Computed example of a mutant assay.
Amino acid sequence: MLNIARLVRPFLFVLLLAATGCHAQSSSTEGKLSPDLARRVEIMLRSKANLPPYYDVLIGPRAKSTVPGFDEITVTFSSDGKATRPMTFLLSTDGKTLAQFNKFDISKDPKEMVSADGRPARGGPENAPVVIVGFDDLECPFCAKMHAQIFPALQARYKDQVRIVYRDFPLVEIHPWAMRAAIDINCLAAQSHDGYWNVVDYIHAHSSEIGGSEKTVAKANETLDTLTREEGKRQKVNMTMLNACIEKQDDSVVRASMKIGSDLGVEATPALFINGERFEGALPIEYVYRVIDNALVAAGKTPPPPVPVPSPDASATTAGQPPARTSSE
């Protein structure tokens, strides 16, 4: 089938259909295109998309558009009975210019694209000017490195200007105990946010040890349950409720979080949304500072003084390697 990206890209800017000579135009711009105008549109599209001759091009009638001086037309490409989704183009009312552009709604604050509501938080208050939502996998080694390196640095630098939350995104295809870990810590989070973060800290710091020398999923699950229960006792939570939640292993909350991530385009961990701006994988800490500083300025706040540039041999990446993927390569 036709590569839609190849077709759309040439029309991000206005394209002239102009040819030498004059062409009679109908006084009414709505309705079916004249055979001459339809042919000129088709030839332009075939040329710009490098369309093979065995593709059929179906051009719909003109319709009113929201762009002054232009009407809309829809174009469908088909081959062997298979058709693309109709694509919308703009055709000037004088029939001399064909254009295509994408219109995006930017009325909503990007910060609101990824909700942090109901999640345990570190750092600033709910109205902090910068909110970082991380999609986390507790069995992901790259997540562990980011957790150990980036977040303490951000809290030390920005204090209450930045609020940090995690959403669950266990890569169940490659991390066999990640789902269990996510369910357990959510059981604890329901009663103690401090307890939640204590267990998250511990698991990320000791993920390679989970499961002990046996390295089995059953042993890892047992370890995770024990860690959660022990922290629950330290936090003086209702142990009857906690134990019942752990035994039930209801994954609905975690699955809902995974769907949120997938809907946002998350495919790998770690993934960060800094006031709605998405980043995946290893990022130099200086780059993260720059993004947060820009977000603070946009929110009308003053960022902290610049951080000294590290020496060339200093390691300052969140992970230093590509992010974990949702499937084995």
Rank of each mutant, 00 (worst) to 15 (best):
L171F: 09
D137W: 07
F101Y: 09
D160M: 05
G232C: 04
R40V: 02
L227V: 05
L16H: 12
A116L: 06
C143D: 08
T269E: 10
A268S: 15
G265V: 03
Q100F: 01
D137L: 08
R229C: 02
V172A: 11
P284N: 04
D71S: 15
P125Q: 10
V297A: 07
I274A: 13
K236T: 15
R163A: 07
E112G: 03
E173H: 11
V307H: 01
P312Y: 01
F13W: 02
P141S: 06
E139S: 09
S34L: 00
R278T: 02
A19W: 02
Y287M: 11
A153F: 03
F11L: 12
A144L: 03
F11C: 10
E30V: 12
V288W: 10
F70E: 08
A299S: 06
P176M: 02
D168V: 04
D36T: 08
R229V: 14
E277D: 11
W197C: 10
L242S: 05
G281C: 05
L98P: 06
Q149M: 04
S28H: 06
R278L: 13
L17F: 01
A189N: 09
G211K: 01
I132V: 15
G261I: 09
R255A: 10
C187W: 04
F151S: 01
E329V: 14
E173K: 14
I164C: 00
F101M: 12
F11Q: 04
L58I: 11
M258R: 05
D137A: 09
L283Y: 09
T223I: 06
N50F: 08
A178V: 09
P310Y: 00
G320K: 00
T20Y: 02
T223P: 00
A18H: 11
L91V: 01
N3C: 01
G95I: 00
L171H: 08
F89D: 02
I210R: 04
V199N: 11
